[in-house]
Design a binder for these strands. Sequence first.
DNA 1: GTGGTCTAGACCACG
DNA 2: GTGGTCTAGACCACT
Lengths: 118, 118, 118, 118
Amino acid sequence: MYQQIVDGIKESIAKGMLRPADKLPSVRELSVDLTINHNTVAKAYQELERMHVIEVIRGRGTFVAESAEPADLDGRLTELRTEISRLLVEALHLQLNETQFIELVKQVLEDWKLNKEV
Amino acid sequence: MYQQIVDGIKESIAKGMLRPADKLPSVRELSVDLTINHNTVAKAYQELERMHVIEVIRGRGTFVAESAEPADLDGRLTELRTEISRLLVEALHLQLNETQFIELVKQVLEDWKLNKEV
Amino acid sequence: MYQQIVDGIKESIAKGMLRPADKLPSVRELSVDLTINHNTVAKAYQELERMHVIEVIRGRGTFVAESAEPADLDGRLTELRTEISRLLVEALHLQLNETQFIELVKQVLEDWKLNKEV
Amino acid sequence: MYQQIVDGIKESIAKGMLRPADKLPSVRELSVDLTINHNTVAKAYQELERMHVIEVIRGRGTFVAESAEPADLDGRLTELRTEISRLLVEALHLQLNETQFIELVKQVLEDWKLNKEV
DNA sequence: GTGGTCTAGACCACG
DNA sequence: GTGGTCTAGACCACT
């Protein structure tokens, strides 16, 4: 559940809906909005801070980080390749061939761009 | 750990190293080879059976399934799109743009094909 | 062993000692009381949840279900008949005739009702 | 699977289709008839012999025992009561009351007698 | 503090 | 010898 919050915020940033230095809703506010326990939101924020995606300033609030390049970029790129590879295998098991897989990725990308306009 | 076995076998099948009706190593054999507990292998096999990737015949052994189309194909395709989307967001956070993401996917695909020859 | 826990809880509910929405002892508590591994209790609870006898809410606790009619009632009635039939055959092998079998069932029922008062 | 054979033979005896001193089919014959492994049949026969339901005479064949009263009658009667009690609890969970349970038992008994004629 | 998962060892049923 | 189940300890995610 907290992972969904993490992903959601990362997505908002990726889409440009949240920009560096923007203020995020407080833990309490967000927990009320989503009607979940504030502990769950707090955990999500901690995770995001650990990844340097946001910055928590005590007494001031929580802000989108200034987006310096992420730590350990190489490691995370390697991870990304591994995960893509895993999905590729999964796709082949669903009877897709390699071209269809590329097509699927492109489709997802297009959908995502449309969604971004909204 | 059992997930790695699952992925490994799915990959072997996708690469054609294992073909329908081929016999897989027995739970015991594989556990000795990998020096892990036989139960971990058994769990992996059970998971694969649940996905209709292999067939288990008690007392006889374990075999690659006749590759009928997977159950719940639509659901799994949707899942796949969701996962691709998640990776896309992750990639954008690593400062890749959309074209670079596609390139990365293509690279992975090429690597994978080379690997397959071996 | 986990089956005994399952049966015990079903019996407590049947006798009315546990009522819908009552809270069951936590997995840990019960495991300590019975001096068994908590996993064994957890498995029993999972089985009971699968049968819709109890409801598990992660982080909150475990509760007696609101006793909607059980799923697949027909199937389970058929099973019940099969099991009665099996016991009947067993009884005949113990030199009981059919009347004596019915008597035995009635006796068990009476004993059970007495036990319930206590 | 071997348990089904055990139950089947016990039922045939209870119904009078097999009588004391009758010869049972050989392990090989029965395994061919049922198209199962002869080991499974052998195990069933062993189990039945252990319960003194049949007698195996080497080189002669297998015969229904002379039906002396079963060993440990008291113990098995207690077991029987326990099992009936278990079924009673199950029945109550299926929304049957006590009278309906007795009715169900009587029904099963009637069905069984009819079946016996056939 | 709640329930859930993973790995493991011992044992079992079956072919 | 095949796979399956049960009990268990260590660890985890979540409220």
